Structures are given as C-alpha cells and as structure tokens.
Computed example of a mutant assay.
Amino acid sequence: MIASGLLGAAAGCLAIALSSRARAYCDAGWDAGGAAEMALLFPVVVVGFAVCAVVVAKLSSGLHPLLRMVPVVLVLGVLVIWFFAVEGTLGGYPGDSGLCGPDNVPPWWPGWLPA
C-alpha cells in the first residue's frame, strides 16, 4: 500500500511537471496566473493521485502479488494523460511563443497520446 501511495505521489508530480512545462513552452496561460495555479494544484494533485493509487491497490489486493501493481500503473497513466490534456494544453488560449499550434500541444508531446 505504501509503494502504491508513493507511486501515486510521483505520478502527481509528473502530471504537474508535464502540464507546467507545456504551458511555459507554448506560453499559454503561464504568465496570466498559470504558474500560481499549478502551485496551488500541486498538493491537491499529489495527494489525490496517491489516494487513488492506494484505493486501486486495495481493490486489486486479490490478484497475484506480481500483478497487483498493473492496475495501479494503468490507472495512474490514464490520470497523468488526462491531467495533461485538461490542464497542460489550453486549447483555444492564445499562446504567445509561436512554438505550438492553436491547440497548445507542444511538439515534444507524442502524437499518438491524446491531448
């Protein structure tokens, strides 16, 4: 359970880092309070992801010990991508850097992942 919580907290940090970097790279919503918004969201996201990971681990406790972390990793992966799509790419927001398109998805984000 502790490992799941730590993995969830790490996934929350990853989600915040990805979203912050995307906003800063595209200059979409970063100067207009985006940095402060990410700072305020940080503890909520980290704790939320950790709690979600612990709940999923608890629900999958009947699985073989080697397979218990698979649902946790899958759920956390979906949560990170969802958070990036919702908070990291502000579609329609006027990005000023000129490095991203109108959808504010940075070019370094893999095209096969939703955003």
Score class of each variant (00 low, 15 high):
1 M>N: 08
1 M>K: 12
2 I>H: 13
3 A>D: 06
4 S>L: 14
4 S>F: 05
5 G>H: 02
5 G>C: 09
6 L>E: 08
7 L>C: 03
12 G>P: 12
12 G>R: 11
15 A>I: 01
15 A>S: 09
16 I>Q: 00
21 R>P: 07
22 A>W: 07
22 A>F: 11
24 A>G: 05
25 Y>F: 14
27 D>Q: 15
27 D>R: 15
28 A>V: 11
28 A>P: 13
29 G>I: 07
30 W>D: 02
30 W>A: 15
32 A>C: 05
32 A>R: 14
33 G>Y: 12
38 M>C: 11
41 L>D: 01
44 V>L: 15
44 V>C: 08
52 C>L: 07
52 C>H: 11
55 V>I: 07
60 S>A: 09
63 L>C: 10
63 L>W: 05
63 L>E: 00
65 P>M: 05
69 M>F: 07
69 M>Y: 01
76 L>W: 15
77 G>R: 00
78 V>W: 10
79 L>Q: 03
81 I>A: 09
82 W>Q: 06
83 F>S: 02
83 F>P: 00
87 E>D: 06
90 L>R: 11
90 L>Y: 04
93 Y>I: 08
94 P>A: 12
98 G>T: 11
98 G>N: 13
99 L>M: 08
101 G>L: 14
102 P>R: 11
102 P>V: 13
105 V>H: 11
106 P>H: 03
106 P>Y: 08
107 P>V: 09
111 G>V: 12
111 G>K: 14
114 P>D: 13
